[in-house]
Every structure is written in structure tokens, then in C-alpha cells.
Design a protein around this nucleic acid. Sequence first.
DNA 1: TTAATACTAGAACACTCATTCTAATTGCAA
DNA 2: TTGCAATTAGAATGAGTGTTCTAGTATTAA
Lengths: 195, 195
Amino acid sequence: MFVMGRKAHFKRDEFMDAALRVVVERGPGALTIAALASGMKAPIGSVYHRFPSRDVLLAEMWIRVVESFQQGFLAALACNGLLASLYTVNWVREHPNEGRLLLLYRREDLLSGDWPDHLRDQIVRLSQELDSGIRSFAEKRFGSLTKETLRRATFALVDVPLAAVRPHLQEGQPPPGIVDELIRETYLAIIRGDK
Amino acid sequence: MFVMGRKAHFKRDEFMDAALRVVVERGPGALTIAALASGMKAPIGSVYHRFPSRDVLLAEMWIRVVESFQQGFLAALACNGLLASLYTVNWVREHPNEGRLLLLYRREDLLSGDWPDHLRDQIVRLSQELDSGIRSFAEKRFGSLTKETLRRATFALVDVPLAAVRPHLQEGQPPPGIVDELIRETYLAIIRGDK
DNA sequence: TTAATACTAGAACACTCATTCTAATTGCAA
DNA sequence: TTGCAATTAGAATGAGTGTTCTAGTATTAA
């Protein structure tokens, strides 16, 4: 005989949403369990009923965002390098909160220690997927995979788009059109290897 | 009648040096007053004898580094834009620790609150000096100072160099030669406006 | 020698959290 | 209706850390 308990007021995802909201609005320093809970009018106990620790909650939230970004990025990259290079700015326009989280902060700003064990696999997988996407692009585009061509590809596909977008997120503004221009011009110069 | 007290074992600068060392080696999270003090075998009391609070100590350390970077950068910029664009990577090679502090972390990672009052003026001044240096470059180079030309100049002079260097500092390695190439090619594309 | 002073020394305090613990609810199966 | 389990509820706990406080020590002028 299976007996169901009371209905839940709060879902797992809602806690992660609330955490994201706190980080984006008030910074990682304000992200206490109490702030998170009171932000959704939930008691502290309910947080710990669903997540074994603060770090697990935040790590899962982080991974959820990385995954949602990376999936689209890799799809764009498989199709066209310039498209991938411009993907970041478009994604940020559609997901301003997730964008702020990913571009303005780092894992260490949120988690107190290392990745929780059962999530490390996921992070490794995500980072390998990104890496191999960029590697295969570099090889295809430059005809060879060396430290230099890999660095060049990473620069054009990742570093520059992030650098172009970040200042505007910092200001809390959506990236203006000039950002797309800067990314495109840089991509063409770096990938074509203009001198 | 003036009476001199005992000789000091520790100087103001040594505390800031020790703080920098801790941040660079173990991250901002490890930067406690106790860690700082024990790192230089000084007692906690001596820290507070010289600095009224943790925030003042760290803010002064930060400003010292910003000042040392910015002075050279503005000098280079007054002479030549490409030189300024390449200044960051060279400065980082000569000052790996200061580079890590400035490029890997932000004020909020170190200070618990806002800038201490008496230091806010200095920060405002520094940031205005940088701003006006970039503005006058943009105006000279593009013939007009608009939101777009300013953004373009900032991108080429600041955002891209930081983005190119950062991944290597992250790894704890000095930036390889390819970084200079990437910065130069980007600068030429962005400032000349190649399409 | 002595007194005044600048400094070292580190234990005690106060405060902020993450986490734990116990009790109170609530919905369903019987 | 009753009893069980899922969940809410939030007060109590404990660890970590910035700051304060009191005491001790070295240096120099007189």
C-alpha cells in the first residue's frame, strides 16, 4: 500500500529560479539560503528538503544555464562559425538573466567549494562537448589542429563574443547593435587571418 | 618633547603585498585577516594598527595596482593606439601577480561593501582619466566622438586585450606569443573598420 | 634609569550564515 | 475517520571571520 503525503507548494525548479533571481538582482554576495527562501516565501526547511546543500542547489542551477546556452551554441557552430560567434549576443538578448549569471559571474562566486561529486561528471561532459566542437571547427577551418589554430578559434568563437557583450550586462543594458558589428568584423579578421 | 616608540617590524606596503599574494595563490575566498597575517607571520593586531578595516586595506591594494597599470597604459595610448592595445599583455608578462588580481577578480570579490569614503575620490579620478584617454583617442582616430566610435575604441583598446590574456592567467601561464598576434589583428580590423 | 610612545600579540567578542532538528500540517489510502 | 508519509515551518546550533580589547615589549628623549 502506497501512501502519498501532502501536496508540495514548491517545486525544485522554483528554488533554482529564485536563486537565479537573487544573484542577478543583488549579486552573489546576497545569495544566502535565507534570502533565497524568503524571496519565494518559502521556509528554509523546504530548501533542504529538496537539496542536500546550498552548493548542490547552485551547482544544478549553474549547469542548467550552461546546458541551455551550450546546446544552441554548438548547433550554430556545427552549421557556421560566424553564426556561432554571433550566437552569444543573441542568446543574451533573449535570456538577460541567464546571460548575466553566465557572463558576469563564475562558479567560484557561487559555490563555496568544489563541484558536488555527482555533478562533476556533467560539468566534465559539458566542457568536453564544447572543447570538441571548437576543435573540430578549428581543424575544418584551418586544415590543421595546433595550439595556435585552437587558440585562434577559441578567441573568435568564445573570448571575443563574451568580451563584447559583458560591459553591457554590467550596466544592466541589452547589448546594442554595434556589438554584432564588432564581433563580426573581429571574426572575419581572425578566422580569415587578415594581416 | 617628541618620543619615538619601538621600531616597526612590518610596513604598510608589506601588508598589501601579503594580501596580493594570498589572493593570487589561493583566491579571494581565502583572503581572511588571519590568513593574511599568518602569511607574513604578523599578528592580527598589527594589521588593525595600520588599517582601520579589511576593506580599506584591500581597497588600497587594489588602487595601487590599478594605478600602476593605468599609468603605463595611458602613456602608451597617448603615443599610439596599437601600442596601447598591446600594452596589457606586456604588462601582464612583467607583473603576473598584479595581472591576475586585476584581470581575474573584481572589486566585489575582495571588498565586502562599497568603497571606503576617502578612497572613492581616487577611484573616480582613475576611472575618469581612463575614460578621457579613450575618448580623446576615439575622437582623434575616428574624427568624431559618438556612442559607436567610443564603443569601438573601448573594444579594441580594453575589452579585446583583456579577453585575449585572461584565459592564460586563468591557467596560471604567461600569455604566449599568439596572443599578441590576435590582439594586433583585431585592433587593425576594428580601428581601420575593415568590413 | 625612567617615562612616554609606537608597536606587537593574540584572546575574546559579535555577527553572519549554512545546516540541523523537532514539531506542525496536509492529502491520500484504507 | 484514521494513520502514514511528504512537506512545510522556523527556531536552535555551530563554524567561520572581522573587529575590539587588554596586555606586553622595544625604543628613545630626558
